[in-house]
Design a protein around this nucleic acid. Structure first.
Lengths: 253, 253
DNA sequence: AATGACTGTTGCACCCTACGCAACGCTTCG
DNA sequence: CGAAGCGTTGCGTAGGGTGCAACAGTCATT
């Protein structure tokens, strides 16, 4: 590993604690001022470090730009798919992946008995947003005002006797989901089909997607399906970690 | 400036565009694979780079954490956000907040339009500096020499027939903006999109940030958008007062 | 004003260290 | 089974990063 780069990168967390001047940086790094100056200059040219008017250094807004761009180019589908396929391999049932976008919930991937079918848009079937497990997970994480607004605008079609009847019941259900960190759909859409789902979170803890496992009553009962919940949650957590880029970072003192 | 660090940091924007393997990184840097490997390893140890299961490299969680801290240091964002949201609530259109840093103008916050037709702007990405209303506001306040220097170095891409054509026209526009205390972008970036913006000032009167309201022609005409100017300016003034009033100044505590 | 102490900055000679090369292990094809 | 692609390792070399010392500002003190 590279000493120079190592020193330069050590400056970043240091500045994250607050602005510092050249002498402070040199001291904390244990190097000569001139060395620290050259490192800071290089960081500066790349916009990672900004020099404020009192000549002290602080983290640059460019860092924010980089992170933002990286998030936009992250493809959850690509990262999640192998894990969804592996889960499907183990338990055999249909696995779904969904995202929330502008008041709608969209399935963006599906693994069904070993045959992956990619659905790039909502073309096909609209998601039953008031009852689907993935929809509950995604809506439960919205900010309070938007959640209420969406819930108020929805229709609540009575697919089955167990379907969510109205906005009040839906919001209550969302509160439960948010509390427990997982969601179900027990015969709310199709009388004979049950689902259990878990959220996938980004680096900031926000829910970026949701996954679920679905199976008909005739194959497994609702209770049996619920025994799979730990596996589903574990898979979702693994995907979350990979999506957010949580590295096994060993701090060198 | 340090060559090694320079190369290492050049990897970051490269990976921001999407995952890449060792060979690709080495090629883009113009260095040997072994060199790229050592740089990536160092970045990895600091958590800035994450290695996914297919061994390709991505930006890592630590970078997101640093970026978070970087924007938190920009307390203007915290202060402004509720006001931007409130303005958005009233008028419905997209609201942006931007700062100037090292020759670049960066969006640091955005509140989405509630209308179905949206413009695609990316917070965190550099702004179209020669035409955007917020860019004009921020550059107009620079000291004369720096303003001329920046204007001279810029490219003036002809996004549309109304785009700023060259440095002379830009400097003239900046003078006008400085005079009147607000700015517009009428189809200078996207033919069908108009913006109107106002500056946010610190305690010393210097412009520390700029905000704007954007809307496509199909929703409101340019004239209608301009009628919102008083509201925009009022919001900017409120933020300015709050910022300069409660500013914890840069004194060493 | 002049002095001193404190910053950030520059030029330079030394020698550390980052470089590219070539060879290796590994998996994936044909 | 060989070939071709990947990532990885060890090593000699020289390029470049390092610390020193001297310089140039700014501010407080005398």
């Amino acid at each position: 590993m590279s000493q120079t780069v190592d020193r330069a990168l050590s400056i970043l967390p240091l500045l994250a604690q607050g602005p510092a001047d050249l002498g402070q940086v040199a001291d904390r790094l244990g190097v000569h001022k001139s060395t620290a100056l050259r490192l800071l200059r290089t960081l500066h040219e790349h916009g990672l470090v900004y020099r404020q008017e009192d000549q002290r250094y602080r983290l640059g807004a460019r860092l924010f730009a980089l992170a933002q761009e990286a998030v936009e180019n992250l493809d959850i589908r690509e990262i999640a798919h192998p894990h969804l396929a592996a889960l499907n391999e183990r338990i055999g049932h249909t696995v779904h992946l969904a995202v929330y976008e502008e008041g709608e919930v969209l399935y963006i991937d599906k693994v069904e008995s070993r045959y992956p079918v990619r659905m790039y848009s909502r073309i096909g079937k609209p998601v039953a947003i008031t009852v689907a497990a993935v929809a509950k997970l995604l809506l439960a994480d919205l900010p309070e005002p938007e959640r209420r607004a969406v819930a108020a605008k929805l229709d609540y079609p009575p697919y089955t006797p167990r379907s969510t009847p109205n906005a009040a019941a839906f919001l209550k259900e969302l509160a439960t989901v948010r509390e427990q960190g997982w969601a179900t759909d027990l015969g709310g859409h199709e009388e004979s089909i049950n689902c259990v789902g878990a959220p996938i979170r980004g680096a900031d803890g926000r829910v970026v997607a949701a996954m679920s496992v679905s199976a008909p009553n005739v194959v497994v009962t609702a209770e049996e399906l619920l025994t799979l919940l730990p596996q589903v949650r574990r898979t979702a957590d693994v995907i979350s970690r990979e999506y957010s880029g949580t590295a096994p970072n060993k701090d060198t003192a």
